Simulated scan of single mutants.
Amino acid sequence: MPTEQPDRSLSLLTFNIGGPSPERAGRQLAWLAQRPEQVLVLTETTPGDGCAFLADRFTSAGYAVAYPVPDKGERGVMIVSRLPMAEASPLSTAYLPYRAVSATVKTQAGPVDVLGLYVPSRDASPAKIERKQRFLDGLQATIAHGSASGRVVLGDFNILEPDHDPRYATFRPFEYGFYSWLGDNGYHDAFRRLHPGDREYSWVGRTNDGYRYDHAFVSDPLSGLVDDCTYVHEPRTVTRLSDHSGLSLRLAVAGDEPLVVFDPTVLPEPETLF
């Protein structure tokens, strides 16, 4: 009787880790190590000890890790993969580059570019508004034409869809406009393709207002391959690993031969002379 083959479908998880302390990073590592996704896009990284711990543990366990360390006081993205990665680097935006990290993974249908985003949040100050708009404008210039190649854009966008329920008057036209721009330029909201009418929130404020901040968009060549896209609420609602839910995406395309990896929660045995 033939043995059942493991699912090799390309799967990704985006999860806001919130610049963790070493203690919280240890708990996040234990959860992430058990996740089935092949590629992890971890947003809101910092140059702190918690993020360095995660990067070191995954690297020591054989994972491919892209972690351009942000400048002091800044935030960024880390990509961790059980598939070989090529060309992993901050996106060539001229502004806040650590918030847009790109890597390429090989699949049986050709290379897939994975772009992890952590879009700046803002308050009502003109400086913060200008900062966010400048970052989004730079992205539009850099990732235009999503019909050209296989690309997945995912992360904490800190924006909402224009028909978000409820609609918040505090969000400006340029923020809703970026979501619309993606759709107009060959990108598809993977969650909405499968769940057009569902109300799901990845972040909930203190007044119990829900926001769908975390997204996964796929370019035209991948749009018909979206097999599953669901929010993972446990780390936000139960274990309190973050104030964000994760978002899991699976594409009906097989990834390349995976790396040989080990449990990152277990320290490797020290080498001996005998």
Rank of each mutant, 00 (worst) to 15 (best):
M1N: 12
M1R: 14
E4K: 11
L13M: 15
F15C: 07
N16A: 06
N16L: 07
A25H: 03
Q28G: 02
R35S: 13
R35T: 15
P36F: 12
V39N: 09
V41P: 02
T45P: 06
G50A: 01
A55H: 01
D56V: 04
A61L: 01
Y63G: 00
K72E: 15
E74C: 01
G76L: 01
M78A: 07
I79W: 00
S81G: 05
S81D: 00
L83N: 07
L83Y: 06
M85Q: 12
M85H: 08
A88N: 01
A94F: 04
P97R: 03
Y98F: 05
S102D: 13
S102K: 12
A103H: 00
T107G: 06
T107K: 07
A109N: 12
D113L: 09
D113F: 05
Y118C: 11
Y118W: 14
Y118Q: 04
V119G: 03
S125A: 14
A127I: 14
A127D: 14
K128S: 15
E130G: 15
R131I: 05
K132S: 08
Q133I: 00
F135H: 10
L136T: 13
L136I: 13
D137I: 00
G138V: 00
T142P: 03
A144P: 10
S149K: 06
G150E: 02
R151T: 14
V153D: 10
N158T: 12
I159H: 11
A169R: 12
T170M: 14
F171R: 09
F171C: 03
S180H: 03
W181Y: 12
W181E: 00
W181I: 05
L182A: 13
N185F: 08
G186W: 02
D189Y: 03
A190I: 15
R193W: 01
L194N: 13
S202Y: 13
W203N: 14
V204M: 10
V204Q: 10
G205R: 04
R206E: 13
R206C: 07
T207M: 07
T207S: 10
G210Y: 13
Y211E: 08
R212M: 04
D214Q: 14
F217S: 05
G224V: 11
G224T: 09
V226M: 09
T230W: 04
E234V: 15
T239H: 12
L241G: 08
S242N: 11
L247H: 12
L247G: 11
G255I: 07
D256V: 02
L259N: 03
V261Q: 00
V261S: 01
D263F: 03
E269F: 04
P270D: 13
E271L: 14
